[in-house]
């Protein structure tokens, strides 16, 4: 069972995760009329910016985060922003949306100038997240775990980050056992998504590089 402290940590993280979302006005824009490739690209860029701001607000609320070295806080966010965004978009994609919306979003992404090479693994990731049928608590904790990865570049006090991440992992592990007693592999499957996220992150960096070149 979760200890009282762990239960409090979980509730706190969940609340922060639910509170900090992309503003609905921004999300609605994605479902409005068709845009050109360039406008699509700009819209997705604007979305990404908003996404990062939301992510920072959530991260500030992760207990212990603000006590980390300030430059380490930036390094953690810089190193994880892309992965946390993929995770959040995967959740948006797998949520039940009104008829036709999923297709419209897919279309917009496909028409934003990204190559198929990057789009296919991204949609595969969305599907793999969908298959896990994650609970909101699991999304919140997995996002926090992604952000608190001590092995990101330029982290000075890795030990301090590791301690925070371990506390989250412990809560997630217990939560999975409590909520999925029939699936002993559930926790391991969730952690497996972190490896997939690293791969997507790598693809994303390659994509940015190819954009810069052109």
């Amino acid at each position: 069972e979760l200890s009282q402290d762990q239960q409090a940590l979980l509730s706190y993280i969940l609340e922060a995760y639910n509170k900090h979302r992309i503003p609905p006005d921004m999300a609605k824009k994605l479902l409005q009329e068709q845009f050109s490739t360039e406008e699509n690209f700009l819209l997705l860029t604007e979305m990404a910016t908003s996404h990062v701001q939301v992510l920072v607000e959530f991260t500030k609320n992760i207990p212990g985060f603000q006590s980390l070295d300030h430059e380490d806080q930036i390094a953690l966010l810089k190193g994880s922003a892309v992965e946390a965004m993929f995770l959040r978009s995967a959740q948006a994609f797998t949520r039940k949306m009104p008829h036709g919306h999923t297709e419209m979003l897919e279309e917009r992404i496909r028409k934003s100038g990204m190559s198929e090479k990057f789009i296919v693994p991204m949609f595969n990731f969305y599907k793999s997240i969908g298959g896990l049928q994650m609970m909101q608590e699991e999304h919140a904790l997995l996002t926090a775990i992604t952000i608190l990865s001590p092995d990101r570049p330029y982290i000075k006090d890795q030990k301090a980050v590791e301690l925070l991440q371990e506390a989250m992992l412990e809560v997630l592990s217990k939560f999975c056992k409590l909520k999925h007693p029939q699936e002993p592999q559930h926790f391991a499957r969730l952690l497996g998504r972190l490896t997939e996220l690293r791969t997507l992150h790598h693809h994303h960096a390659e994509m940015l590089e190819s954009w810069r070149m052109s």
Binding site: T49, V52, V56, Q73, I74, L77, A81
Partner: peptide, 21 residues
Amino acid sequence: PASNLGLEDIIRKALMGTVEE
């Protein structure tokens, strides 16, 4: 516009709590 800022700038600003600007 914010879309012209780099990732690190956006993070630094948001960490300082100037998102609402």
